Computed example of a mutant assay.
Amino acid sequence: MAAIHAPRIAIEAVQPSLDHGRFAAKASVDEPVTVSAVIFADGHDVLAAAVCWHDDLGQQQRVPMQLVKPLGRDLWEARFTPRRIGRHGFIIEAWWDLYGTYRHELAKKHQAGVPVELELEEGRRLVVAAAERSEGELKAALEARLDRFASLDGDDTRVALLLDEETLQLMQAADERPHLTRSDAHYPLDVERLAARFASWYELFPRSETDHPSRHGTFDDVRKRLPAIRDMGFDVLYFPPIHPIGRTHRKGPNNTLTAGPDDPGSPYAIGSHEGGTRRFTPSSAAASRFVSWSPTPPTTAWRSRWTSPSNARRTTPGSPSTPAGSPGVPTARSATPRTRPRSTRTSSTSTSMPRTRCRHCGWRCATWCRAGSTKA
């Protein structure tokens, strides 16, 4: 019974897609998107297919698909060009092309010199049926074709009319699409600006942009470097976290475990009494100066927020080494910001951990910041 209700047409290997439409593929605005699929059916009937796509506003369009040469691989393709940035999507439709099948057989028989009186009558009836189910201009155009067919003498001229490209387009517009089959998934497509397709990123530590070892670099110092970074061919300037750095368990120069009062610490160990991800490092200069030359502040992920308790207790990666005579950029570890979400989850090493919850990070964090912990 399942075979009886199964579709006669198969649509497979749809591209572009990720995990059969579970995730969105990528595209660039104002650039063509090539959609392909393997489409086949039982029998020898000619098939037709189309890509039905929509933009982020829900406006729908249909693009006919064509068989890819060389033939025999059942591979179909179509192209469309998105004009907007946002989430698009598409599905694929396929159906039996009755007039395409008739047109293919008529051309072969006529070329072979086989009498085609019955085929001509069959074609006339197909056009009559299409005109009866059509309306408006399409109906009038099909009726005009029938009048012209009746006025022609000789099989050659009638065959030429039925094989004419204009007749094919009219019949395709009036096609009732028998055995219509749609792809079993909707394929999302994220259309982005061209700059999102490729960019060269340059990472820079603002505090290292200084002309003297005793002075912390500022955003004004970074601004002076922008022309040189641009001339090297970079498109994006990337900052490590520029937020206040924690002091608990801060490391000193050369990865030492003891930090002096003036050691800056690791920019990745953020979160202190001065603030978290909503604050700038005080010595980097005022936020207003940063916003003055940057349209939007860069987004930095909360390192401590997305790591597990076991990972959070490990030494955080430090920053790249700096030349001699420049301010040190040592690795450091600090308490995580107070805004970190609390959790009752315990790690695999919970047997050796105290039943306490740190007032800084909200986790049962053992020796990392036990000095500031309170009873759970």
Rank of each mutant, 00 (worst) to 15 (best):
R22Q: 12
R289A: 11
I242W: 11
S151Y: 15
G325W: 02
V222E: 13
T331P: 00
R177Y: 01
V329L: 10
G325I: 01
S214T: 07
E203P: 01
G72R: 09
F205W: 14
A27E: 02
T248K: 09
S292G: 10
W96I: 01
S292Y: 08
P241G: 04
T281Q: 15
W53S: 07
C365M: 02
P282E: 11
V128L: 08
G328V: 03
S214M: 10
R338P: 05
E209H: 02
R158C: 03
F205Q: 03
A199W: 11
T351D: 10
G276L: 03
L189H: 04
T356N: 11
H54R: 12
R338H: 14
T374G: 15
L71P: 00
L71I: 04
I92H: 04
A13P: 04
P264T: 10
P7F: 02
W363R: 04
A107I: 01
W76Q: 06
H186L: 03
A312E: 12
F90E: 07
D97E: 03
L163V: 03
S321P: 04
A50Y: 09
P297M: 15
L118P: 02
L162H: 07
T307G: 05
M353Q: 14
W302L: 00
S348Y: 08
K26F: 15
E132H: 14
C52H: 15
T374H: 14
G100A: 08
L146E: 05
D45Q: 14
T277N: 12
C52V: 13
Q60P: 05
E132T: 00
G328W: 02
V68E: 15
Q111I: 03
L57N: 12
F234T: 11
W293H: 13
S350Y: 13
E105I: 05
R370Y: 13
R278S: 12
T316N: 01
W201R: 12
L71F: 15
N254D: 11
V127W: 12
S28T: 00
G58E: 09
K139E: 13
A196D: 10
S28N: 13
R305Q: 00
A301V: 04
I270L: 10
P213R: 02
S304Y: 13
R158Y: 07
A130Y: 08
D153I: 11
A130F: 03
T315V: 05
T210W: 13
T258F: 14
W96Y: 09
C358H: 06
P240I: 00
E132A: 08
C52I: 12
P82I: 01
V159P: 02
A6M: 09
Y99R: 04
D30Q: 05
D231M: 13
P327Y: 10
